[in-house]
């Protein structure tokens, strides 16, 4: 596990301009430390998803620099990015994004299978237990509720002990009770595994569990609360 106090994610004056001149980010800087939860908060179109994508190495800045797990992302090729995703980053999506053809257990195992890890089943079983769904190992996604699917997604995102957990509106599609459960798990991921969690959210409850709340507006960071 990653235990250094050095930032897991470091964004320095990042500007993101899209085709047609649309400005996604207008010179943003941010540091995310291990073991902390950083919430990116703001209205739709404020740039939080764009910033989240940069933090997860899903996208690259037009100018400025983004460093993820000690690597500057703009200079990385496909192989290096793949390696980064395999070992350092875990993703949680708003719409769960489980593979419908695989069981819960198989969905969780998948990152380890892709990286060629030995005995993926054991690690997957452990994570499944950690999210409290050991009895759902052989269930297919369509047999699970929204909350259960998101738990499986979190287990999958953490199975390879990533340094960074990127979560895009993780409670956006859930009822209040399920959402609470998910937020607890995200908090535990930072506290127990030392992951640096970066979370984009509309939800006040989600923002409440964060160590750092970054408010954004029109591609700028308006304020940063700790």
């Amino acid at each position: 596990m990653f235990s250094s106090k050095k930032s897991a994610v470091s964004v320095r004056n990042a500007v993101k301009r899209y085709e047609g001149g649309v400005l996604g980010l207008a010179g943003v800087s941010l540091e995310c430390r291990p073991g902390t939860v950083t919430a990116l908060v703001g209205r739709s179109g404020c740039g939080k998803t764009t910033l989240l994508n940069l933090c997860g190495a899903m996208d690259f800045p037009t100018s400025g620099e983004v460093e993820v797990a000690g690597l500057v992302t703009s200079g990385l090729g496909d192989a290096a990015l793949t390696e980064l995703r395999r070992t350092k980053i875990g993703f949680v999506f708003q719409f769960f994004q489980l593979l419908p053809a695989l069981t819960a257990m198989e969905n969780i195992e998948l990152p380890l299978l892709l990286s060629g890890a030995k005995n993926p089943a054991a690690a997957a079983r452990e994570r499944l237990g950690w999210v409290g769904l050991a009895e759902k190992a052989e269930s297919l996604p369509y047999q699970l509720s929204g909350g259960q699917m998101q738990r499986i997604a979190i287990a999958r995102a953490l199975v390879h002990d990533p340094a960074i957990l990127v979560a895009d509106e993780p409670t956006g599609n859930l009822d209040t009770a399920s959402a609470d459960g998910i937020l607890k798990l995200i908090r535990r991921a930072a506290d127990e595994f030392g992951a640096a969690v970066v979370m984009a959210t509309h939800s006040a409850e989600a923002a409440a569990i964060a160590d750092v709340r970054v408010r954004m507006r029109d591609g700028h960071i308006e304020s940063v609360d700790s």
Binding site: T82, R86, F91, Q97, L99, P100, L110, L114, S115, H160
Partner: peptide, 16 residues
């Protein structure tokens, strides 16, 4: 498409 994109996120390379 979405599944394939997701699998890339989870660490699959082009060869996989």
């Amino acid at each position: 498409r979405r599944e394939i994109g997701l699998i890339r996120y989870l660490g699959a390379d082009s060869g996989q």
